[in-house]
Design a binder for these strands. Structure first.
Length: 498
RNA sequence: GGGUCGUUAGCUCAGUCGGUAGAGCAGUUGGCUUUUAACCAAUUGGUCGCGCGUUCGAGUCGCGCACGACCCA
């Protein structure tokens, strides 16, 4: 079978008669002059006009003689009226017989999807809608492709994701989701900046992928002739910066993990990570609780909101409960003693159909049991604490119980939203734990970490006692926008190539 | 990776028991001209996802494949 490079693929195969007719119209417009003028300057946005003049009566508007100049896309035609949509909202246009005649004789009647500019007096129709009378008007860009069904819109999920530009044109609630996403991120930036955190950017291309347990994407740097990895987490670089003396840093950026696609996973996803010197994991739980409470008010209008049919009230204190206590709460048929004994814990795990590997210690087994029995039941906001050191290779051990670390994960709606801990700043302990990870990698765990000698060297210069946390922005936006799938909060979710 | 469902006109969808491929919107032509999914009349538009099979005959039945959605791992 002959291969075909992307470069010489033939253009769109999906030409149809509607597109051909519009191409013919465009060809006629080209004959008359500039088909793509860029000299129209609007003075008004649709939503501003609606807000300022929407309450005026027809008669008040007549006497005002308000001129309006708007630009945007034709979304509907109703008799002599057009519905124009710009970035702010919609407003009607009115073409009297004379204007309709002029349109037909110049650019041809405007089609749905065309981008136009209009100047004229603002009026109110008999039915009470504002409209701009067509006095001066220009076709700015001819749309060659028709819009989807004006009433049903675009509902095919695949086309919505693959052609997000069409989805955004015709589905206002989709535009709202991504406005909310933008507000979430800007609120978090403001919150952290106000708390004296500094935003930084660390490498996306790593020679040693680290900071998380995940399979990386591999790439190759030609000039250096080395394998490089798209980062799975920025953690180790951010902590190097704390070593360097920036005591509060954060980064909001993409991580890449070579995993499957699902309603909860995209191979690239946005993560907030932040680090605070002279603080511990409890300080970060308090910060997280305060930040999310205020964030909910900011983007939902209230700390009480509904998502996926569940009512939340972030004004209520978030639960804090240990891993083992969470298992006991949601799986009461086992006892603390059983969970703290490796042979009985193994039996419990096997009864839950968990494939217990011979390399697993008690900590890993407990976490697997937790994920199976408790995680999906953590609907209301809950901090889970006391994560075993075995599954927390970068976290500081607890002073009273060295089996666990000073770590939490935060769950809402049965999903992990955040992960934070007091950082391990004992360089020698860190070196040992890297060695342990390397052994697990050698034993076949391709998600185990590499040994990062430079990171150990940084710790040898001294990392202040520090706490750090990561918050998954996509899942947070899903929660706050009531979106069932991560694809609904990603502008361009990854799909199998067409 | 497994299961369920889906793929028919540009869009949203019907399609009965296997017997000539349908509607609304969009488009085209004309009318109407302060409409609100505008309306009225006429009219154009199909590789029924792809392939193989069963059959006199397949959108429909069978098998395989592709892509997607949802659920599970």
């Amino acid at each position: 079978m002959p291969t075909m490079s992307n470069d010489n693929q033939t253009p769109a195969q999906d030409e149809n008669r509607l597109i051909a007719e519009r191409r013919a119209k465009l060809a006629a417009i080209r004959e008359q002059g500039n088909a793509f003028p860029n000299d129209f300057r609007r003075e008004h946005k649709a939503a501003d006009l609606q807000a300022t003049f929407g309450d005026k009566t027809k008669e008040e508007l007549e006497s005002l003689g308000q001129q309006a100049s708007v630009a945007g896309r034709i979304m509907a035609k109703r008799g002599p009226f057009f519905v124009l949509q710009d970035g702010s909202g919609q407003i009607q246009l009115y073409a009297d017989k004379e204007a309709q005649k002029a349109l037909k004789e110049t650019t041809g009647m405007w089609d749905m999807g065309d981008l136009v500019g209009v100047k004229g007096q603002l009026h109110k129709s008999g039915k009470g809608d504002l409209y701009v009378n067509l006095e001066e008007f220009q076709l700015l860009t001819k749309a060659l492709r028709p819009l989807p069904d004006k009433f049903h819109g675009l509902s095919d999920q695949e086309i919505r994701y693959r052609q997000r530009y069409v989805d955004l044109m015709v589905n206002p609630e989709v535009r709202d989701v991504f406005r909310t996403r933008s507000k979430v991120i800007s609120f978090i930036r403001q919150y952290l900046n106000d708390a004296d955190f500094m935003e930084v950017e660390t490498p996306m291309l790593h020679v040693i992928p680290g900071g998380a347990s995940a399979k990386p994407f591999v790439t190759h740097h030609n000039a250096l002739d080395v394998e490089m990895y798209l980062r799975i987490a920025p953690e180790l670089y951010l902590k190097r910066l704390v070593v360097g003396g920036y005591e509060r840093v954060y980064e909001i950026n993409r991580n890449f993990r070579n995993e499957g696609l699902s309603t909860r996973h995209n191979p690239e996803f946005t993560m907030l990570e932040f680090y605070q010197a002279y603080a511990d994991y409890k300080d970060l739980m308090n910060l997280t609780e305060d930040m999310l409470r205020k964030l909910a008010v900011e983007v939902c209008g209230s700390a009480a909101f509904t998502s996926q049919g569940v009512e939340y009230d972030f004004n209520k204190p978030f639960d804090r409960i240990s891993v083992v206590d969470a298992i006991l709460k949601y799986y009461p048929s086992v006892t603390r003693e059983q969970l703290n004994d490796i042979s009985s814990a193994t039996d419990i795990a096997r009864n839950l159909k968990i494939d217990v590997k011979s390399t697993w210690g008690l900590g890993k087994i407990q976490i697997e049991i937790f994920e199976e029995t408790a995680e999906h039941k953590l609907i209301q906001p809950t901090f889970i604490t006391e994560y075993p050191a075995e599954v927390s290779p970068l976290a500081r051990r607890n002073d009273d119980n060295p089996f666990v670390t000073d770590r939490f994960e935060f769950f809402v709606g049965g999903r992990e939203l955040a992960n934070g801990f007091s950082e391990l700043n004992d360089a020698e302990d860190q070196a040992e734990r890297f060695m342990q990870q390397v052994q697990e990698k050698d034993a076949g765990d391709d998600e185990a970490m590499h040994y990062d000698a430079d990171y150990v060297r940084a710790l040898e210069y001294g990392l202040p006692p520090t706490a750090g946390e990561g918050i998954g922005i996509d899942r947070l936006v899903m929660l706050l926008t009531d979106s069932p799938s991560i694809r609904d909060v990603l502008l361009f979710p990854h799909m199998r190539p067409e």
